[in-house]
Design a binder for these strands. Structure first.
Lengths: 122, 122
DNA sequence: TCATTACTTAAGTAACGACCTAAGTAACTG
DNA sequence: CAGTTACTTAGGTCGTTACTTAAGTAATGA
C-alpha cells in the first residue's frame, strides 16, 4: 500500500508514459482549461484524427482523461486524480532526498564541532 | 521561455519518459536515499548489468541523475532539479483545473441566485 | 604480474509506439 | 433520404526501447 496507493487500475508507468509525449501534454493542457470534443482537441495539432484518438486512448488508459460520447460527439475531460498520483510519487522522492541532505548537514556540523574541540584540546 | 524554462538541455519528454519505467523509478528511489555505485544500483534487479547501465543512461539524459567515475567505480546521485521541473508542470495543470472549477462554481451560484430572484419576481 | 572487479562496448532481437491512409458507421441537417 | 459531420476501425510502416550475450578495458588487490 505504498507505491500502489489508490489507483483504480492505472499504475504510474501509464501516467508517466502518457505525459512523456508533447502532443499528449498539450492535450492535457487544453483539457485543464475545460472539457473538449475530440475534434477540438485535435485542432492545434498537425496530425491525422486517428493519431489524435490514439493519443487520447493512451491518456484514458493512464486515467489522466475520461470521456463520454453523446450523440456523435465524444467529450473529454481531465481527471486530476492520476496527476496527483504522479505528483505524490515525485514529492516523496524529493522529500526523502531533502531529509537525507539535512541529516548529512547535521552530521557535518557535528564533525566540524568535534574537530574544533579536538583542536582546542590539543 | 515557458515550457523550456531552466532545463540545462533536458525537456520534460525525457524526464517523464525516464520515470515511466518501474526499474528506473526504482533506481531513483534508491538514489533518493543517497548516492550509489552502478553495481549497487543494479543489485535489486533481475537483469544484466548492461541493461541497468542503459537505464542509467536514460536517467542521465533526462537530468534526473548525474554520475562520475573515480577509479573503476561510477558513483550516481539524484539531481532533484529535473524532478522539480516535472512537478512544476503537473502543478500548473492542477492549478488551472482547480481555478476553472472554482469559476464554474461561482457561475453556478450566480445562476442559482438569479433563478431564485426570477422565481420571486414572477 | 596475474586474477578480479567494475564497468563498457558492440551487436542483435522482439515488442512497442507514433504515425499514416483508406474505408467504415452512426448521428445530425437540409 | 441524401449529404455532411464526428468520429471509428483496420492495416501497414518505420523508428525506438528494453532487453540479451559476448567480448572488451582499465583499476586494484594478492
Amino acid at each position: 500500500m505504498q507505491t500502489q496507493g489508490a489507483n483504480h487500475g492505472a499504475p504510474l508507468d501509464l501516467v508517466f508514459h502518457a505525459l512523456s509525449d508533447a502532443t499528449r501534454r498539450g492535450m492535457v493542457e487544453r483539457l485543464s482549461r475545460g472539457p473538449a470534443s475530440v475534434s477540438e482537441l485535435a485542432e492545434p495539432f498537425a496530425m491525422s484524427l486517428p493519431a489524435v484518438v490514439q493519443h487520447l486512448a493512451v491518456l484514458e488508459a493512464s486515467g489522466l482523461v475520461r470521456s463520454e460520447k453523446v450523440g456523435r460527439v465524444r467529450t473529454c475531460r481531465m481527471d486530476e486524480k492520476a496527476l496527483s498520483a504522479a505528483e505524490h510519487w515525485i514529492n516523496e522522492r524529493k522529500r526523502l532526498w531533502a531529509w537525507r541532505l539535512d541529516r548529512l548537514g547535521e552530521f557535518l556540523e557535528t564533525q566540524e564541532a568535534a574537530a574544533k574541540r579536538g583542536k582546542r584540546k590539543k
